[in-house]
Every structure is written in structure tokens, then in C-alpha cells.
Design a binder for these strands. Structure first.
Lengths: 339, 339
DNA sequence: CATGATCATAGATCAAATCGATGCCACCCG
DNA sequence: CGGGTGGCATCGATTTGATCTATGATCATG
């Protein structure tokens, strides 16, 4: 056991009960935290990075291979960390390691540290010189997100030399373009979760079934969708998400297709012009509804809703421009979600 | 430059050169960063702790003394860090060091890391065992803060074995008790800034001048305070803050003192009973106003307002109970301020 | 029961941070 | 102005301590 007295130990007598957890030390526990005051000043911070690597790799040996070290090296590192902390962080099993409760707590803090470390080159680049580069963004059409717009504006203000390119496409193509490296950032719906992509929920989009002013339904709510099965429909083709497709199928809507447009704005135009009824995102149609050119047929509480994500490749080595952009949007979205 | 392509235009060639540019990505170089992919994986994270120490100490030599190392050691460490980053972080002057723009960016990130590291022992204690201990809190009277209340409730839920003690006193005594180690946490106004304490703005308190139902002013607004100079006054003695005192003096209020109570609640009782008029925090008086027992004499936009702070000693080695409590309140206040 | 994982331990090795001495520069003051 | 002072950088020697190799223990799996 190692005891370190620094400063004025006795003066704090009164507080000894207040530090009960750490004080437990002197009775011979099996393992004793080396220190607790000034913990952060004495530990080797690199151990925390290693800790994350171990957990992410799922085992000590696995981590060793990824890091091009030998297994005992990592094993020893973990032990050093645990000695400093005074607790077992990972249970060693025959199949790898699993986190203890303490390990989980440690993990989130270590991940915070990693995130800070990862941001350094980018933040410094931003602080030092004007960052140049490209950010290519591919989004689904009809997207309405003031936060995202503001993020772009603010990002451009701070980094006027970064080219921003926005493409619009059906949602599947957004995902494909991302995976194939054609763009760095995506904003889209996704029906599943692709391992190669990072998903950050951006907003919840809702859709509504709209008809034009010329429709006999204008001004009326429809309670049973199936009533509309013989109506002419405007579809969004590839851009239609499963949720809507299933809803349509269940109610036999859209058997008579009178219009088709991949782009939500064009679909909206067709619906407004009375070509047929069709689904649109609520926020996208808002303006037209307010001007009395579209009418929502469903009750608000049955509007199908789904998540729209901010997307990027999981590629840990993103270029600075992309990283800064992601961070800009991320910060705003997170701050918003707090409220 | 911002480019927007609508629809699904242009094929590969456009993006090919875009890719080329991005490859070049991080080339903003008077000095070449050793690596920037995987920056976080290659740097010695301890350098970041050292960096904070240097900045906080105000110089390389100063930091060396604090850390019980030799000056060249620290100097070399800083150089290593700057080499990895690829930029000068600190300008060496004859009087110490000063941060460059990049250094400032680095500093905030490094401080984040330090904060995470500091939290580790406490978070782990919380995760592992039930934390025992004491948190003694001293606050000013008449404080209304749902966030603070919720923080206490939630804190107690998570740490049922920590004793919580709350004392009430005039604001000066809150500060004194803190500095003398009689309590760990304070909530109070302060007219200056004491170096030994940490200040986290908790809320903005406003005060109003109230009269009772029996006052001839009840139901009327007073536009010129001096009209009231002959009114009987209820004072809060030591607990009165400078702002209010000056306001009173300027308008010769309170020359006829008919009541005195250090505690806001008691002062409010006296005012309500018609002993005199007097200043009270708006939120504290809210209930009595709603029940028609008090009447605010001032227009809302001239209500004097001031900050109430969450306070603790700057002591870096707080015990776990205190640290967790501080963190609980801190998180809530910060989250709230985001919105 | 053997095989192939996993992780732990021990002693040797080697890299790198630290040290101590020295030199340079800017500033201050007599 | 010129010597002192306090700041930091540079250099080679030293020592610390993390990593490596080799080996052993334990546990899943076929």
C-alpha cells in the first residue's frame, strides 16, 4: 500500500467522514486506490485511450492486434489503469472482456476525452487559418429544417473558404452516395441501419395526405382511408418511404396513378394543380396549406412520422472541412434536444 | 461559395476534382503536422494535461516548479505537442507564455479532457458503491429555483446515503462559511469576486417593492420612488444587497424603519402584515401577490436584478459527495442555459 | 480430451522522458 | 549602457518505465 500525504492533512480531520468512500482505503481492501485527490494529475492519460480501444475491440488481444502491440502490453496497461482507479473496470472472460458498472462510467468519460482529442486538429485548423476544402451534402427533397439551414449559414460564415455543395436525391441514393464516398454528409431517412454510417437524429418528419382546392374532399377530413381508394394519386416513386408505401397498400391507395415525381416539390406542384392526391411532408406543404392551395385529409394524430438523420461515414479520419461541418450541425441539434 | 444542384444532375467528373481537393484536405501548412489522420491516436495525451498546466501556471518554468520537474522537461513536452499539432500554441515571451489563437482552441479542448479526467474517481465511486458522505449547503433566504430543487431531489434519489444539510443565512455569511470550510456548497449573491471561490450563475433574481393590502398605495403603481420617502419601511438588514441599498439611499427610502428581518420570509411576513413597505425577491413574493396580500409598487421593467451564483471553493480536490452534487446542479443549469 | 481461444505473469530490452549544465535573449535598473 | 535577472531552448547523459518474448493458467468448443 502506498500512502501519500500532501499539504495539510490534519486540518481536514473534520471532513474525514465526508470522504467515506475513498477513505475506506486503509482497512486492507484487496486493492487500494493509489490516490484519489489529484487522480487526474497522476494517471497516465494514455491509459484512457487504450481503455477505449480495448472496449471497442472487445478484448485485450483484439485491441493489441489493432494497435500493433503485443497482448501483454495492453494487459499491463489495463492493469495500471485499474490500479489507479482502484476498481475492476473490465471482467476478463474466455471470449474477451465485458465492462463492469465502473467500467461503463469510465468508458463514457474516456470517450468524451477521445472526442476532445479527435477535435483538436480540426479546431486548431479553424482557429489558425481559414480552412479550405469541400463539403458535399446530399439530402432528400422537401426537407424543412431551420436548424440545418442555420447550421449551414453559420458554418459558411465561419469558414467562407469551404465550398459547400448540395445535391438532392431520393433517400436510397443519399445513402448509396455516402457509402461510396461521393459525398461526405447526408440528410435522409433510412429504413435500416448501415454499419458504415453514423446516424444522428436531426428531426422527426411527418407526412400528410393532401388534395388540391379542386378536389371534392377539399375542406373535409377523411376518417377511413379506404374511402379514397379510387382517387387519382400522385406518387413520389423511389423517394417514397416504406411507412407510406405500406399505408397506401393497406388501404389500396394509389392504384390509379395520375402523377409521379421523385422530387417532393414537384410532387407538391402536381397535387396542387389537381392532378391527384398524395402524401407530402407536413412542413414542406405548410406554406401551400396556409395559402389555401392544399388541404390535409387526415387527422393530425394519424400522420405517419419517421426520423430524418444527419449522416456521415464512420470513417474516423474525416477531413477537417467535413468534421467541422458535422460538428456544427451536431452541436445545434444536441443543444436543441436538451430543451 | 455555395453550390446547389437540384434534381440528379452531373455525373462523376465534377466530383472527381472535388475528391482531389479533399485529398489535399489538411494542407494549411507552414509546418507540417506529423500526422493528422489518427492524430488522437498518436499524440501522447499527457502532453495535453501538461499544456493546461503550462497555461494555468503562466509559463514553462512556473509549470515546471509546480509539477516538480525541471524546466527543460516541460519545454520539451510543449515542443512535442506543438510538433504533433503542427502549429505554435504558445508564444514565449520574456514574462512567460501567451496563447496563440490555436493555443486557445487547444486550451478549451484540453480543459474538457481534464474535466473528464477529474470526474473519473467520482463517477466510478457512484457507479460502484453507494457513495456516503456529507454535503453542506448554505443559501440565502427567499431563494426560489425549481432547477436547484430538482437537482437536490434527483441527487438524493441517486445518492440516498449522502446527508444533505441546508443552512440559511445572509449572503455575506454564505461566502464566509464557504471560504472557511464550514460548508461545501453555497448559493448566494456576491458583490465582488473572491478568488478562492468558483461562481456558476444559477439564476437572475429580481426584486420588487411591495406594500400590504392595508397600504394606501395598494393597487397603484408608483412612478417616482421618492414619493415614498416618508413611508415606513421593512428592511432586511445584513441581507440587503448593495444594489437595493443604493436604490433606497438615492430615493431616501427607509429613513423610517418600522421592521427588520434578516430572513426574507420573515420580512415578507412583516410587509404583508402592514408593518411597512419593503423590497422582496419577485419569485419569493409571487404567491402572496397572487393571493392579493402583497402589491408590487414598481413597474416590472425597473425591478433591480442581479445574479445568484452556485458557489464552491476552488479546491481542486473536492470530496466525491460534493463533486457529484456540484456536477448535478451544474449539468442542469448548463442544459437550461442552452435553451 | 484435445484444440484454440482468452488473459496473466516474469524477466530482458529498449525507447523516450527527464535531468543537469549551458547558452541565448529580452527586459529592468543602477 | 552594461551588468544583473528571469525567461526559455539546446545538448548529451541518465534512468524510468512501457513494451517485448516466452511461458503458464483458464476457459470455451468440437
Amino acid at each position: 500500500m502506498i500512502m501519500i500525504f500532501s499539504g495539510l492533512p490534519l486540518a481536514r480531520n473534520h471532513f474525514q467522514h465526508a470522504a467515506a468512500v475513498t477513505e475506506g482505503g486503509f482497512q486492507l481492501t484487496d486493492r487500494v486506490p493509489l490516490i484519489d485527490k489529484k487522480f487526474a494529475n497522476r494517471v497516465d492519460w494514455n491509459l484512457m485511450r487504450t481503455f477505449v480501444d480495448i472496449v471497442r475491440a472487445g478484448g485485450i488481444g483484439a485491441a493489441a492486434r489493432q494497435l500493433n502491440r503485443q497482448q501483454p502490453s495492453i494487459s499491463a496497461a489495463l492493469k495500471r489503469l485499474e490500479d489507479h482507479v482502484g476498481t475492476t473496470l473490465l471482467h476478463r472472460t474466455a471470449t474477451g472482456v465485458e465492462m463492469t458498472a465502473a467500467g461503463k462510467a469510465m468508458m463514457t468519460l474516456c470517450e468524451d476525452m477521445l472526442e476532445s482529442a479527435r477535435m483538436m486538429p480540426h479546431q486548431i485548423a479553424q482557429a489558425t487559418k481559414r480552412v479550405e476544402g469541400f463539403v458535399r451534402i446530399q439530402i432528400v427533397s422537401g426537407l424543412v429544417s431551420p436548424e440545418f439551414d442555420e447550421a449551414i449559414a453559420s458554418f459558411h460564415r465561419r469558414n467562407p473558404d469551404i465550398h459547400i455543395e448540395i445535391r438532392v436525391s431520393p433517400w436510397r441514393q443519399v445513402l448509396d452516395a455516402l457509402e461510396q464516398g461521393e459525398v461526405e454528409i447526408g440528410v435522409s431517412y433510412d429504413s435500416s441501419v448501415r454499419g458504415s454510417l453514423m446516424y444522428e437524429p436531426l428531426l422527426v418528419e411527418r407526412q400528410q395526405l393532401y388534395c388540391s382546392r379542386s378536389s371534392p374532399y377539399f375542406g373535409h377530413r377523411v376518417s377511413r382511408l379506404i374511402e379514397l381508394k379510387d382517387e387519382r394519386f400522385v406518387l413520389t416513386g423511389e423517394d417514397e418511404i416504406e411507412l407510406i408505401r405500406n399505408l397506401r397498400r393497406r388501404n389500396r391507395l394509389g392504384t390509379r396513378v395520375s402523377g409521379l415525381a421523385e422530387d417532393i416539390n414537384e410532387a407538391q406542384r402536381l397535387i396542387t394543380l389537381g392532378v391527384g392526391i398524395g402524401f407530402l411532408p407536413v412542413l414542406a406543404a405548410e406554406g401551400a396549406v396556409a395559402r389555401g392551395r392544399l388541404w390535409p385529409l387526415l387527422h393530425a394524430d394519424v400522420e405517419p412520422s419517421y426520423d430524418i438523420y444527419l449522416l456521415a461515414r464512420t470513417d474516423p479520419a474525416r477531413d477537417t472541412a467535413t468534421q467541422l461541418f458535422w460538428d456544427e450541425v451536431f452541436r445545434r441539434v444536441r443543444a436543441l434536444r436538451m430543451a
